[in-house]
Design a protein around this nucleic acid. Structure first.
Length: 572
RNA sequence: GUCCCUGUAGCUCAGUGGAUAGAGCGCAGCCCUCCGGAGGCUGAAGCCUGAGUUCGAGUCUCAGCAGGGACGCCA
């Protein structure tokens, strides 16, 4: 389908060129022309402010400039009127007959509505969730899950071939602690006296369950083992749980990439060597440029540790140098993380998106330095940095900690509300915005949620067709010229879906679809109130045309809901 | 102390340098002879403060105030 902003912009550009050719406008470079629907309906359907921007370079007053542009505008089937207004806006009105035909276009496109070719032939990867399998997913982490998956859906709609990836760390201390925690629970389940450590111990009930299962499966044969087999068991079980939870909200990952593979392939050591060759690595007991560091106490801490391998990231603008290999010879998280991102770039994606929590902001900067230091181009990587979620209950903050075992799991939240509610609530916020998630409200208000308001629009459409079918009515052969201004108001908004997908994909802002869908529903319900299709005093031909409209409307809602990973129910 | 994010209606939040700043919830009042009530209509109510850039600032810059986060040889 046509992206109307682009179509208008092309006309304006043509008009400027032709006016310049005719000598009615002086020569100047034509900037990217921005067209957008104005806020007020009496300002046309689409508006251009180019004349205001170009007044200075053209040396004309904006109103005259706008008039000249308007004069040279070539005709277009979708435009019925052009108006030049006050300071210098050019307002376009869509042609009403053309708008009516869009009802048929929408129906023809169906589930592929506004499937764009922006990313045609390009491969994108979205990495999201990426939680270590040390416990069930909690709500805080889930925000990134919804954002990431919706981003992937929008990129698909924009034409990209998309892979969803989950990166997890199974080489570090957390997983070691997890294995050890399970080992203790296992011994406990065997009836042996155990001491529960104060620290580095995962207290969640799920480990007790795992331990009991393990006793059932293996008896006491593992009693003499160290943490390793327990870690492997816990990791596998935990992933099953996480995958099942994600499945409930319609999320699946194509690839689970584990950190271990970067050790096994030797990739991390190759990266280290490469960095070394490029002069970014040195050894020492402390960073070499320590004098610029402000913290005096850190010096004392660092003294006494052995010689570590450092990344001279300050050469690339980082605030301080970072340790790549600890004095005990083990890599820090940073080294495999750099190797991982190199690996991603090596896989030839045209676009890489990382959905990260705000607490990883600094870490990502270091990785970006690493990529740069390797002589690779970090510009293909886009980070959606998501501000943290604060959980509130009874007006008080609930601290989430997987390790302590008190957290609000995504599973619990879905149980208390629904997958659709959770998806929407975690999506409908700008990533930059801190999300205060009021658990009481989420549960209590689930009946007065925007989620239901949006879905009800789809339900209402479906209801009309159920009723129509029962009465033996159909929209076949409808005369769409009978559609009125109410219906066309909705169609105008529906036609903005294409731009919405484009902008979301370009700016990596998937939350926009959530607000668009709500706007659309807000527009729909009053129309539904006014524009009756099956009411007794509606003439049959008009009824047929309106049914046709509701068929189109249903498609638009279904598309919007699907893009958000939500269901489009037929009934409430 | 340094860096990142935020400050818009009573609350939770949208808002791509453009024209008279929006929604949901809550609040006040009203609408059920139906394909609606998880609806519809009407109303009250708002850009943290101060400078600056611009023809034009909620949006960009700087400073201040307030809140959240990050600054580890953890991941």
């Amino acid at each position: 389908m046509k992206l109307l902003t682009k179509a208008h912009a092309a006309l304006v550009e043509q008009a400027i060129r032709s006016a310049q050719a005719a000598g009615e406008l002086p020569a100047f470079d034509i900037p990217a022309i921005e067209i957008r629907p104005p806020k007020r309906s009496d300002q046309g359907d689409y508006a251009a402010a180019v004349a205001l921007q170009l007044a200075k370079p053209a040396g004309m007053n904006p109103f005259d400039l706008a008039a000249v542009i308007a004069k040279h505008l070539p005709p277009a089937e979708f435009i019925s009127g052009v108006e030049v207004v006050k300071p210098g806006f050019i307002n376009f009105s869509l042609d009403v007959s053309w708008l009516r035909t869009q009802v048929e276009t929408i129906i023809a496109e169906g589930e592929k509505l506004f499937q764009l070719d922006l990313g045609a032939g390009k491969r994108a990867q979205v990495e999201f969730v990426s939680a270590n399998p040390t416990g069930p997913l909690h709500v805080g982490r889930s925000r990134g899950a919804m954002v990431g998956d919706t981003m992937a859906r929008l990129l698909e709609a924009a034409g990209y071939e998309v892979e969803r990836e989950y990166y997890f760390n199974n080489a570090g201390k957390q997983m070691h602690d997890l294995g050890n925690s399970l080992r203790i629970r296992y011994l406990e389940a065997l009836g042996q006296p155990v001491e529960i450590p104060e620290t580095d111990f995962y207290q969640g009930e799920y480990l007790k369950d795992f331990a009991h299962d393990l006793v059932t499966e293996k008896g006491d044969t593992l009693a003499g083992e160290d943490w390793k087999p327990f870690k492997e068991y816990a990791e596998k079980r935990m992933f099953d749980v996480i995958r099942a939870t994600l499945q409930r909200v319609g999320i699946h990952h194509d690839i689970f990439f584990n950190e271990n593979s970067l050790y096994e392939s030797g990739a991390i050591w190759e990266v280290l060597e490469d960095l070394q060759t490029r002069g970014y690595v040195y050894k020492g007991t402390r960073p070499e440029n320590n004098d610029t560091a402000t913290g005096d106490e850190t010096d004392e801490e660092e003294t006494g540790k052995g010689e570590a391998t450092w990344f001279r990231s300050t050469a690339l603008g980082d605030a301080k140098d970072r340790v790549l290999v600890k004095s005990d010879g083990g890599p820090t998280y940073t080294l495999p993380d750099i190797a991982y991102h190199k690996n991603k770039l090596d896989r030839g994606f045209d676009l890489l998106i990382n959905v990260l929590g705000a607490d990883h902001g600094t870490q990502y900067k270091v990785v970006a330095c690493g990529i740069q230091a390797l002589g690779l181009d970090p510009s293909k990587i886009h980070v959606i940095l998501i501000q943290l979620v604060k959980m509130l209950r009874d007006g008080k903050e609930v601290r989430m900690s997987t390790r302590r075992g008190d957290y609000d799991t995504l599973d619990d939240l879905i149980d208390q509300t629904s997958a659709d509610v959770v998806r929407y609530m975690l999506l409908a916020r700008s990533p930059d915005s801190h999300l205060n998630f009021d658990l009481d409200l989420a549960v209590k208000q689930s009946n007065e949620n925007p989620v239901y308001y949006i879905q009800n629009a789809h339900v209402r459409c479906a209801g009309i067709f159920r009723e129509a079918e029962a009465r033996g009515l159909t929209d076949a052969g409808a005369d769409i010229t009978l559609l009125g201004t109410d219906e066309l108001r909705f169609i105008r908004k529906a036609l903005e879906l294409g731009e919405l997908i484009e902008i979301s994909a370009q700016t990596f802002e998937p939350h926009r679809i959530a607000f668009y869908a709500l706007d659309l529903a807000t527009l729909f319900h009053p129309i539904y109130d006014n524009v009756r299709a099956l009411h007794g005093d509606v003439p049959p031909e008009l009824a047929k045309a309106r049914l046709r409209f509701y068929r189109a409307a249903q498609i638009v809602f279904k598309r919007a809901l699907t893009l958000m990973g939500m269901s489009a129910p037929e009934r409430m």
